[in-house]
Amino acid sequence: MAEENTLTLTQRIKYQWELFALALSFFSRIPIPASTPYSEERMNRAGRYFSLVGLLLGALCGVSYVLLELVFPATVSIFLTMAFSLMLTGAFHEDGLTDMADGVGGGMTLERRLTIMKDSRIGTYGASALVMVLLGKWLFLNELSSVTSILCILVVSYGLSRAVAASLIYDMPYVSDLDTSKSKPLASKQTLGELVFLMVIGVFPALWFGLEIALALLVLAFIFRFFFKKWLLARLGGFTGDCLGAGQQLMELLIYLFFIAMFN
Results as ranks from 00 to 15, higher is better:
residue 163 A to Y: 11
residue 155 V to F: 03
residue 162 R to Y: 09
residue 148 T to Y: 04
residue 191 T to Q: 13
residue 179 D to F: 00
residue 163 A to E: 02
residue 144 L to Y: 00
residue 154 L to I: 08
residue 186 L to Y: 15
residue 148 T to F: 06
residue 155 V to C: 15
residue 160 L to P: 04
residue 145 S to C: 05
residue 187 A to Q: 08
residue 158 Y to F: 10
residue 159 G to F: 00
residue 171 D to N: 14
residue 158 Y to E: 13
residue 167 S to P: 00
residue 177 D to Q: 14
residue 145 S to Q: 04
residue 164 V to F: 09
residue 164 V to Q: 03
residue 150 I to N: 11
residue 163 A to G: 14
residue 152 C to T: 08
residue 192 L to W: 07
residue 189 K to Q: 10
residue 160 L to M: 12
residue 183 S to G: 11
residue 163 A to M: 07
residue 145 S to V: 01
residue 166 A to R: 10
residue 156 V to T: 06
residue 168 L to G: 05
residue 152 C to D: 09
residue 172 M to W: 02
residue 189 K to P: 03
residue 157 S to R: 00
residue 153 I to Q: 08
residue 164 V to S: 07
residue 178 L to V: 15
residue 162 R to T: 03
residue 146 S to V: 09
residue 184 K to D: 01
residue 175 V to G: 05
residue 161 S to L: 12
residue 164 V to M: 08
residue 165 A to L: 07
residue 172 M to Q: 13
residue 176 S to W: 05
residue 149 S to R: 09
residue 146 S to I: 06
residue 161 S to R: 14
residue 164 V to K: 08
residue 166 A to G: 01
residue 179 D to I: 00
residue 157 S to N: 01
residue 144 L to T: 05
residue 143 E to Y: 06
residue 178 L to A: 15
residue 174 Y to L: 04
residue 151 L to T: 07
residue 184 K to M: 13
residue 144 L to E: 05
residue 177 D to S: 11
residue 180 T to K: 15
residue 163 A to N: 05
residue 179 D to T: 04
residue 155 V to I: 15
residue 170 Y to E: 01
residue 191 T to G: 12
residue 149 S to C: 06
residue 184 K to Q: 13
residue 144 L to Q: 08
residue 189 K to F: 04
residue 186 L to T: 02
residue 175 V to N: 07
residue 178 L to H: 12
residue 169 I to L: 14
residue 172 M to L: 14
residue 165 A to T: 05
residue 146 S to C: 01
residue 151 L to S: 03
residue 179 D to R: 02
residue 158 Y to M: 08
residue 177 D to A: 13
residue 149 S to F: 07
residue 156 V to A: 01
residue 175 V to K: 07
residue 166 A to S: 14
residue 168 L to M: 14
residue 184 K to F: 09
residue 149 S to E: 08
residue 172 M to N: 14
